[in-house]
Amino acid sequence: MSRAQSWVVRARHALDDALWGPETAARLVFVHTALAALIGVRIVAGSYRQLADTPPALVDPVPILGFLDRMPSVEVIVALQVVGGLAALAAVLRRHPRLAFAVAWVCYLVLAGLRGSRGKVLHNDLLLLWASAPFLLAPVDVDRHDPVPRRRYGWPIRVGIVVTALIYFFAGYHKLRRSGPSWAYGDNMRYIALWGPAIGSSGWAGIARWTGEHIWVARASGVFILGLELAYPVVIFVPRTRLWFAAGAVFLHVSTWFLLGLDYWAWAVTVPLLLVDWPAALARLRERRARRPAAEARPATAG
């Protein structure tokens, strides 16, 4: 086999593993359930009812809701929240999980679409919607005590990770494409901090002003954001980096809230849910705790 052919095979292998690689049943059930819970919280806790008062002249429906010429009534919005919330609860309790997850996901899509039907393209809910889309067909006849990683358990998680990585990468790619590398090291972050958000206000006005007034802090922030976004696809192929990238994303979204007051907490929760193998981490923690008393019980050697 020639070197070129070998590379093609290796690339196919890597891509196959990225999308269809094996995971444990415990991880699949955990992520599926946690995403359902997160969707449920977004549906129930979101401020959607107030949207019913939006005057028709200010309504610009998103393409999938293009048939609307005005916001639905409060009753319709509340009905969507109730149905979606109950469906998410059913998915969490593993009652008809596939159907329940699909109903919750569709209700969430419609509610988030209504929120975005006021002219501005909103991304706040999109990472959760996109990353959870593969779970619409996730296997539900799962023995969560099956310790063997299997491809049929793994693909929704693997695809969710690929989707997440692509989303961050595209965010960085368009910064480069529209503004160039100076987006990161120029004065851009200084002015983002000083101008503040287009809507709402900074979560901590003092930190926003401080960042704007200290150009090296602003530039370091810009380099961190652009670097993190462009490097995100690494998580697809190098699993040991996932914890660090998850931590980076959480830091990015928490600091964005302090700086600009933007609600990206759904992103900050979704990313670690997908990238970290929580059941395995919990098992390791339990194992470590179980070992500790045994080690402490051993008599100390004379020294």
Partner: peptide, 21 residues
């Protein structure tokens, strides 16, 4: 994502992509 257009929920993910001055 590659082309950079928005047809929500399809999106180009152009978050804060224009430099501010």
């Amino acid at each position: 994502g590659v082309i950079g257009f928005d047809l929500w929920p399809l999106t180009g993910w152009r978050l804060f992509s224009l430099s501010r001055d």
